[in-house]
Design a protein around this nucleic acid. Structure first.
Lengths: 339, 339
DNA sequence: GTGAAAGCGCTAACAC
DNA sequence: GTGTTAGCGCTTTCAC
């Protein structure tokens, strides 16, 4: 196997000591400009790159960060990853991605694994299956920089970034009401997720602001978040079987939107139903039945999360005033639903 | 910041030397069973994990591998990544993912970056924009283990795994012919990709096997691979504008399928056109116009690629007889096209 | 069966 | 402005 050039090779060739070479490479002002230039030129010539393992060992930093998402195949997450990557790359960080598949066990194991692989920081979107946060608080207490994005948790004090879910749900609900749909059912994600309560609350607030009643029976929680189709089918069957059928459907996540559309496509009597759902799919506009949709600014969320993490990792002093940034989503109304 | 336990901490506590502890942790037979047990128990108790940077430095191995795909948001690739991850994880490897966005420059930079971050091996699906392979051959010659998956290249001798694209295209074309569609147009990806020529050849062979003529004018290459919608729209417009209009459309990639459907959805006079396209989208069956589709076994391809890479990385002796594994795809016929 | 010591490649305190 | 030296945490050869 190929043997990479080291600082010693450069030192020997140029007649300097290893430390001078190291300093020159780091652009230290202690080293004369000429020496710096000579060293860097030669380094480039022989294709020298500092050994990351040695650097990590010495600096106790790995220059890699870990990302925990539910599933990379989910459009929202893959777009977020693109945002994370674009910032990380520019700043010289590697991105190690792991998936929880919305399972607590996978999340706990993966996060442990990442932490022990000495990532310098963690970007986490909580798994839907997680209710016990001790695996994360443990790391956080140790001082590992962590930023939460998308599915955040209140218990841990750190930087967080997510869609303004309350506002998005509020606006979307108001839009439905404005368009004449007053009896609106809500298909919700697992109740323990932050995004779930925020979205439900936005929906409730919109009803209230328009003096419409909130009915518990119109809200269906899906604990598997759309991973199990039956759960969604049952929810929709339940809603459409109500004596006073809803006129519109608000679907509170990407996965759920897909599952709901699949469930609805098998029914014949849904054409009078207006549907609005969260979705970041790039083909949502081609899917039938056509729906209106709320698209999150996934790329921005990724960028912001990574910027926050860098701030946390590179800060010389402990940070105490943490910020939770809310990013606006965009609503795309489908004209088919205009009454 | 938290300070992790080291081998020395264990040694001091238990009254052994660091070397004995190291050996015990590695289950060396030189160490007595009792000592091994004592050391491991204590290590577990204090939550000891060996420092990966130190291990990397000493062993010149990082236990991480790099993956190069066009785009994680592409269903085929995200499914492949799931396969890669499942095997990597089990074997204790970290997966570092980078994306080329089908741009040569990004591919070259990212691969260089990965290689210099001392990944132990590389899993590569070529970018559509790449025609010069020197950035890869250079690494390969140095002895860096590389496995190609999906979009492979002939020039480099190593393990490769991909869908049996010839067979998939052959079978799909034969199916169209059997169903009565004889004049079949072909929307192809960038011509320099292995998957493109294999698929075109399968299509040609199927025509020939059924004594049908191959017409150059019915094949449209999309150099941006569907990233630029206009390219696809133009191709389809061109085909539908032919004096002797095609009866069926064969679309040779996931991206192109999406783009083609989008283009077709804007046209009104496509209903008599039978469409079959490659797609690994989980909502392809909900998209209209409905198409028949060829789904690749993406997860398996990922698993196999990772297994091959491990074989390459962990082999004590250089390997010379390389294998190219072909994985079967599945064809889903849409009954709407039955004449 | 266990310990001492060297060294992987790099950085930084301390010399001069 | 540059060199010497020690040490990050681990593995491994060489002793006994």
């Amino acid at each position: 196997m190929f043997k990479a050039a080291t600082i010693k090779d450069i030192a020997k060739e140029l007649g300097f000591s290893a430390s001078t070479v190291s300093r020159a490479l780091l652009d230290s002002h202690e080293v004369s400009i000429e020496t710096r230039k000579k060293v860097k030129d030669y380094a480039k010539k022989i294709n020298y790159y500092s050994n990351p393992a040695a650097r990590s060992l010495k600096n106790s930093r790995s220059y890699s960060i870990g990302v925990m998402v539910a599933d990379v195949a989910n459009s929202f997450f893959s777009q977020t990853i693109n945002g994370i990557e674009s910032v990380a790359y520019e700043k010289g960080y590697h991105v190690i991605i792991t998936q929880s598949h919305d399972l607590y066990e996978r999340e706990a194991i993966n996060i442990e694994h990442l932490a022990n692989s000495s990532v310098d920081g963690l970007l986490i979107s909580m798994s839907a299956g997680t209710t016990d946060y001790s695996h994360i608080t443990k790391l956080h207490e140790r001082g590992l920089p962590i930023v939460f994005f998308d599915r955040i948790i209140d218990d841990i004090k750190t930087f967080k970034v997510t869609t303004d879910n309350f506002k998005a749900a509020f606006d979307a609900t108001v839009l439905l009401i404005k368009k004449g749909y007053e009896r609106i059912a809500f298909i919700a994600n697992a109740p323990q997720l932050s995004i779930t309560s925020d979205r439900v609350n936005g929906y409730k607030a919109a009803l209230e602001a328009n003096s419409l009643p909130f009915e518990e029976s119109l809200v269906k929680y899906c604990f598997a978040g759309g991973r199990i189709l039956d759960e969604v089918t049952d929810a929709i069957d339940g809603l459409l079987g109500l004596p006073d059928k809803p006129q519109a459907l608000f679907i509170a996540s990407d996965q759920l939107s897909k599952a709901s559309i699949r469930a609805l496509s098998k029914l014949s009597h849904h054409n009078d139903l207006a549907i609005i759902g969260f979705s970041n799919s790039d083909v949502i506009d081609l899917i039938s039945p056509h729906i209106s949709y709320i698209k999150q600014n996934a790329f921005s969320i990724g960028e912001i999360a990574m910027q926050m993490l860098i701030k946390l990792m590179e800060s010389k002093y402990p940070i105490y005033n943490f910020e939770t940034k809310l990013v606006d989503a965009e609503i795309y109304w489908n004209d088919n639903f205009d009454l």
